[in-house]
Design a protein around this nucleic acid. Structure first.
Lengths: 212, 212
DNA sequence: CGCGTACTTGATATATGTCAAGGCATGTGG
DNA sequence: CCACATGCCTTGACATATATCAAGTACGCG
């Protein structure tokens, strides 16, 4: 199993803890508000509903922090892949802490997407965003299961497959062996991520006009 | 125009500011992190996307606080109805401040709903939640436009109408003159709010079993 | 009382979910 | 090292939910 690694992880593996894939790192609502940082692997922040459904609110990639505030512990953190996790204090010591974007902002953006965007738009947005967050090459490995991505985007895994296939047929991306994604035409992908324009601007009526 | 009033608003109207319907109270991303409290009316917390779409992330009812933290100002606050707003300091002085639930929690719940629930489920959940948050009688007035509610639930206003009509046909609720809602059968409504059970529990596969 | 806006309802198109089968990749045991 | 078994991914056919487009209606306001 390949593990995504942050550039600095090699020299800092000292006090890192290892979490095997699917392990629970902390549970929603536990009092224990520890701040953690991903060294390698991918963490998913999820909420399980009382009726057995699951929703992936966000992913954390190498170098990113989670569980920072008490609010962050409103979600459960799980290892989406095998993970190396250290405490934030360790990273702080070494001055490796990046400014992390607010979880509220992340979840808000997700809610807006879920409310407004079609499945294909969501998938395109997700690809672009992951690509950017990983600061990856145009070809990159995304070691997430289809189910994890689908649960994040609020669609079925079959729909996710179809959207990927569609984007691939249009020549915007290619998927090699499932987890390897290649972005061929970022501009077109970006357009696909924001198609809804037409459908849009009726909502507000008065206030919001586009103009671009 | 009727204005929802909090029980204590009468004696505290001193330094309250009035915002007419549709007025913007503060804009997403402004540096000015003022903490406010609704005395009367309803505030909506929205995000406008770059492509002209709108999403209502949450509503604030009389007695509730908004704009509390810097994060709260990631959203725009608008008067969904004519509003009376005071500063949190004023309420604090009088010891009227309730513990407010975290905005992250609210938005997370919304995202989960948007990701998992059908239109009818969302509408049923919304009615129950508003009913509870208003601590209202089984008959209550909800002075929100269909458009506001639809933009909150991620559906079209036509779909919202149909869902309400459906719940009414089933005898769970009645809508009198648009803004007045009557909850006839809370139990059935609660059931309608969580129908998806069947569809659910396949997602996780291994981890998440229900058991209740 | 008449007008304008928002709400409601209907007909239809489309997107997504659902169910089912097949293929591919990965890991395991011989 | 290969054959097999297992699970994930992919694709297809179909059902269904929701968006879309278009009238019609009710309601609030002047």
């Amino acid at each position: 199993m390949r593990i995504l690694e942050s550039p600095t992880s090699a020299q800092s593996r000292r006090r890192a803890r290892r979490h095997p894939e699917a392990a629970t790192i902390f549970v929603e609502g536990d009092g224990n508000a520890e701040s953690l940082r991903v060294l390698a692997g991918i963490v998913r922040l999820v909420r399980h509903t009382e009726d057995g459904r699951r929703c992936v609110l966000d992913f954390r990639f190498p170098g990113q922090v989670f569980g920072r505030s008490a609010d962050d512990h409103l979600l459960t953190a799980e290892a989406a892949t095998d993970c190396l996790i250290e405490s934030v204090e360790d990273a702080e010591e070494r001055g490796e802490l990046e400014a992390d974007t607010s979880l509220l902002d992340r979840v808000t953006c997700l809610a807006v997407r879920l409310a407004c965007c079609s499945a294909t738009e969501r998938v395109a947005q997700f690809l672009l965003e992951v690509h950017e967050r990983l600061a990856a090459d145009s070809v990159f490995t995304l070691p997430l299961s289809r189910q994890d991505v689908a649960d994040h985007l609020g669609i079925r895994s079959e729909t996710l497959c179809r959207c990927l296939a569609h984007l691939a047929r249009e020549g915007m991306i290619a998927t090699r062996s499932g987890q390897v994604v290649e972005i061929h035409d970022p501009a077109a992908l970006h357009a696909a991520a924001h198609e809804g324009r037409r459908r849009a601007c009726r909502s507000g009526g008065a206030g919001a006009d586009i103009g671009q």
